[in-house]
Design a protein around this nucleic acid. Structure first.
Length: 260
DNA sequence: ATGCCTTGTCGCACAAGA
């Protein structure tokens, strides 16, 4: 089962690009972030025509996540537990059956948190605490689980072309990185880093100042695998070329191939 | 030091992104 994640920065602006990539990359399951659409406005039919079952958790104008699956969706659950007053659409998980078992896949759009020192940063950290608590719960099931999405965290200096440029950014704060590490330490495998332990691999390049041309990138889109998912990891990759396409997202797809 | 682009919005500039 090939599972991918991609922050598309607006589904309406990106529909043709996403469809072209789907035809090319042929993933079985896709987690999308920043759809920037309400559920009713999501172009479900365009994806159903390609054989995908579609689940969305949308919001007007900002945020919004979705999951596409060629293996159907047994059950989908929106919203991260732990704060009923949180109205931002940033979490959706789905149970998906493969040929050799069921996997739970989560599409995550973790808060950016900038600027630091504001309620946006404390919201990010609180959200990460809720994510850790939920992940802890799910891990007790001892089932294949994939946490996929835009985590808005640069885990290590090697995950940025120019780490010094990010020292005062929420993505690279010690608190953000510590929360990421605590989450991973529950027993997850960072699939990209496991497959590319020493390479400069990035998933985001800013639209501004020719960042992609200078390869001024950062790695902030991640796929965390529970032990039962990591045991079945066959391959992973980053579809960097999509950043050079016409009308690109500022993020690129990240994927894993699991024997499920 | 600042803005650099891009998207969506009851637009005719602005917020938010990272």
């Amino acid at each position: 089962m090939k599972i991918a994640t991609w922050n598309i920065n607006g589904v309406k602006a990106r529909l043709d690009t996403v469809v072209a990539w789907l035809n090319n990359a042929a993933p079985d399951v896709v987690c999308l972030q920043e759809i920037k659409s309400v559920d009713e406005g999501f172009p479900k039919g365009a994806f159903e025509d390609l054989g995908y079952t579609v689940a969305t958790h949308g919001q007007k104008g900002f945020n919004g996540v979705a999951i596409l699956s060629k293996c159907g969706i047994d059950e989908a659950r929106a919203r991260l537990p732990g704060d009923d007053s949180d109205e931002q659409a940033r979490y959706l998980e789905a149970d998906i059956a493969g040929d050799n078992g069921v996997v739970t896949v989560a599409s995550i759009y973790l808060p950016n948190g900038n600027p630091i020192g504001t309620e946006k940063f404390s919201y990010k950290l609180a959200w990460m605490e809720r994510l850790e608590a939920h992940a802890r719960d799910r891990l007790t099931l001892e089932m294949p689980l994939v946490l996929a999405g835009d985590f808005n965290v640069i885990p290590e200096p090697m995950d940025a072309k120019n780490p010094d440029a990010w020292t005062s950014d929420a993505l690279f704060q010690l608190e953000s990185r510590t929360a990421w590490r605590a989450l991973a330490a529950l027993g997850f495998t960072d699939a990209t880093r496991a497959c590319y332990p020493a390479d400069d691999v990035y998933t985001f390049w800013d639209y501004q100042a020719g960042a992609f041309q200078k390869n001024h990138g950062i790695r902030i889109d991640h796929m965390l695998l529970s032990p039962q998912a990591a045991d079945r990891l066959a391959a992973s990759g980053i579809d960097r070329d999509t950043r050079g396409w016409e009308k690109p997202s500022d993020h690129v797809p990240v994927w894993v191939e699991l024997a499920i």
